[in-house]
Design a protein around this nucleic acid. Structure first.
Lengths: 245, 245
DNA sequence: GCTGGGCGTAAAAAAGGCGTTAAAAATTCG
DNA sequence: CGAATTTTTAACGCCTTTTTTACGCCCAGC
């Protein structure tokens, strides 16, 4: 599995902003504070970078060229719990509330003071540290040469051929991938994706898993990627049969 | 430690502010959001209330009559990690940095919009909750070099060969493993796994234990792992005489 | 030394779960 | 509003699991 290196000496901060001068400005400030930096000038590369490097914190500008900032935030929150500080020129209350309720951890209005922003960065990293002591980040990208999956960009490639997944198919794949090798119970999947009223309808799952295996090129008798634990659930495996951790 | 009961239906918010109209204002807003409330009009009673009730969140005004807000914050942080949102009329950057670095989680400048404050309250409670949710299950693992069992991962390995257990087999193994060396009665196992209507069908158990021993590589005449207590029940032991962990 | 209850084993028959296919219904999208 | 995609429904064959049934063994007690 392509598990991003989690043991960093310096905390890593990802900046997603399209304005070069802001990025430059932040780069200087954050570097002198001793952070490692990642930069993206649009939402898509931002999501990709975040998936591949799982930074300790994300600074996200709401006004991006390719997609709305809140879309980026929502996409991020589907699989990442990294703290996000929003930057925005819009200081209307509604905007702030929307972003915070979407899962942002702080909202700073441009123009802002560097020192304040740096303090807010420290604050977020501090609270994050408290909890993240023993929580290994779940893998968001998978690549074994044959199958390539990037949950952040919703991109699946099998043998260099892009594959399209339906919403439910993707939701199931995401769920079992984020479980990181652990079994996800049938009732859990049914509850999360079909709703609490369908926790018994396991045939939904059987047919969906069937289509998923077919699309991923996974022989059900081999169960290379998706393993069935009969009458319990399913697990995603990157071909490590050994008793791992 | 005097840790008060933490299981509340509603999250509890402590307001420390000397201005009655602000307290009134916050009280209305927070109550309608469904929070339980505590109020203090000076630092000392605030600290006392926080110690006694350990609220899920603290809203702290920096300008208090009896002691400086940062003193309150510093005092709080000596023993509490509850999220603190600072309220202040002072919007100088230095003030914000000082408060945040003292351990505050957010800093809101008066006058503020209610909706934004409420959103920030939700945000803080959310990250707090997230952190409590992690680290739920302690891994239950047995390993003596030959037999490896991980109950949480549902993984059994005998002599480096992964073994598949059926649901009932696993349920029985789990039951006797969790008993930690003590005997589990036959009727107990039958009631728990086959249901209360089968407490007499001990032949089910005999057959199942047989298969289990076979799969685990346990000679029934030796009873290395699963011991029979005739007409009583079964117990799991990992090398009983040896210094077991 | 026979006897009977409790245990372990071995084979069958019965039941249940899984994967697959095809078609109908619902939803999305142009 | 119609076409294409997605989801749901229904039915079948296969394999695994569970239950049933039958038999042999050990050991205490008469």
């Amino acid at each position: 599995m392509t598990v991003p290196a989690q043991n960093r000496e310096k905390p890593c901060v990802l900046i997603i902003d399209d304005e070069p001068q802001i990025r430059h400005f932040l780069r200087i400030s954050l570097k002198t504070e001793g952070y490692e930096l990642l930069e993206a000038e649009n939402g898509e590369t931002g999501l990709g970078l975040c998936a591949r490097h799982s930074p300790e914190l994300v600074i996200l500008d709401l006004g991006l060229p390719d997609m709305d900032g809140s879309e980026v935030l929502a996409g991020l929150r589907e699989w990442s719990s990294a703290p996000v500080i929003i930057l925005s020129v819009r200081d209307r209350e509604l905007e702030k509330v929307k972003a915070l309720d979407l899962g942002a951890n702080d909202y700073v209005t441009k123009p802002f003071g560097v020192d304040e922003l740096l303090a807010r960065v420290r604050t977020q990293l501090r609270s994050q540290q408290q909890q993240n002591a023993s929580t290994p980040e779940a893998p968001v990208v998978f690549d074994d040469g044959t199958l390539y999956i990037d949950l952040s960009l919703r991109k699946i490639v099998v043998n260099d051929t892009p594959i399209k997944l339906t919403p439910k198919e993707f939701a199931v794949l995401k769920a079992i991938m984020l479980a990181d090798g652990k079994i996800v119970t049938q009732s859990q999947l049914l509850k999360d994706i079909w709703g609490p009223t369908h926790t018994k309808d396991t045939h939904y799952l059987r047919i969906l898993i069937g289509r998923l295996r077919q699309k991923l090129g996974d022989d059900p008798t081999e169960q290379h990627y998706i393993q069935t634990e009969p009458s319990v659930g399913y697990r995603f495996t990157g071909n490590d049969d050994k008793a791992g951790n």
